[in-house]
């Protein structure tokens, strides 16, 4: 009931007799951990077999944020057959609820043996890091500029930007009156001076960002003068795909997620990724 997608995948798996491998499960997971089944829990929400599992290891970044070793969690198994008490396994999941205990709905699990438990934990960490590296590599590859830089100035967004706007209020202003809203983005431009060039030729980039503290804009990185970071930027484009530019013709860039603005120390790692491409 929790995830129709999981049910479909299970049906496909059964129909084809194809066993999902760890790597495929890992790529679909938001968390993964190794654990030992302590006992069967009372029937959980949505039915399904639910067991109480003691966390033994959390090799993946997001999992480490939520789980710690020796913590007990509820795991609703994908299949109805329970796991025996004392079983050790790697559990993979996308859906997590938060009750008295953390409650994960597994995509699947891989049983561990006494022999391979420690090795598998290491492998899982390595696989996860590899997948993270591949995602970052892809991001760098599709970006327009990568560099370590320092924010030299932050100012209200320039008006008259070619093909763009500087507030919700001015979107399609030709066919409707200006709007006043709590969700006003308060666009600003960060002028970023390049300290260490990795991809792209400019010495200075202008990054447009919403400076509003309203909840709608919480996931957008905010910039302050003097801030140093490693930037992975893309050029802003209009809905027709045309590149946007400031009134003085300078290109306009954006960094819409925290993954686009990394710690300054990440520059070398990104340079290595570039070399490998």
């Amino acid at each position: 009931m929790k995830s129709p997608i999981c049910c479909c995948l299970l049906a496909i798996t059964i129909a084809t007799g194809f066993a999902q491998d760890d790597s495929e499960l890992l790529s679909r997971s938001l968390i993964a951990f190794t654990g030992t089944v302590l006992r069967q829990a009372e029937t959980g929400v949505g039915g399904g077999t639910t067991v109480i599992v003691r966390v033994d290891g959390t090799p993946i970044k997001d999992s480490r944020r939520l789980l710690r070793d020796t913590q007990n969690v509820l795991v609703t198994l994908r299949e109805s057959a329970p796991l025996a008490n004392g079983s050790r396994a790697v559990f993979y999941a996308r859906d997590v609820d938060f009750e008295s205990l953390i409650h994960v709905y597994e995509l699947g699990h891989q049983l561990l043996t006494e022999k391979n438990a420690a090795t598998r934990l290491e492998e899982l960490g390595r696989d996860s890091a590899q997948q993270g590296k591949a995602a970052l590599s892809s991001k760098v590859s599709s970006s327009d500029a990568v560099f370590a830089g320092e924010v030299a100035d932050v100012r209200p967004a320039a008006t008259g930007t070619t093909g763009t706007t500087n507030s919700l209020a001015s979107i399609s202003s030709s066919d409707r009156p200006p709007r006043i809203t709590e969700h006003e983005p308060d666009w600003h431009d960060a002028v970023v001076k390049v300290l260490d060039k990795i991809k792209g030729d400019e010495e200075v980039y202008v990054v447009r960002f919403p400076n509003s503290k309203d909840g709608m804009w919480r996931s957008f990185p905010k910039f302050v003068k003097g801030q140093k970071a490693t930037f992975i930027l893309k050029r802003e484009r209009t809905s027709s795909g045309a590149l946007m530019a400031l009134p003085d013709g300078k290109a306009l860039y954006s960094a819409p997620t925290n993954e686009d603005v990394l710690d300054i120390t990440e520059a070398e790692r990104l340079r290595s990724l570039m070399r490998e491409q």
């Binding site: 609820d97 919700l168 979107i171 969700h183 209009t238 027709s240």
Partner: peptide
């Protein structure tokens, strides 16, 4: 929050339902 190429992201209304919140249905 909906991204719109060339325009500001905007808050679009999603009208949602589930008949089984007690079963944890999406």
């Amino acid at each position: 929050p909906t991204a719109v190429p060339g325009r500001d992201p905007r808050p679009d209304l999603q009208q949602l339902f589930t008949k089984a919140v007690h079963l944890n249905e999406f």
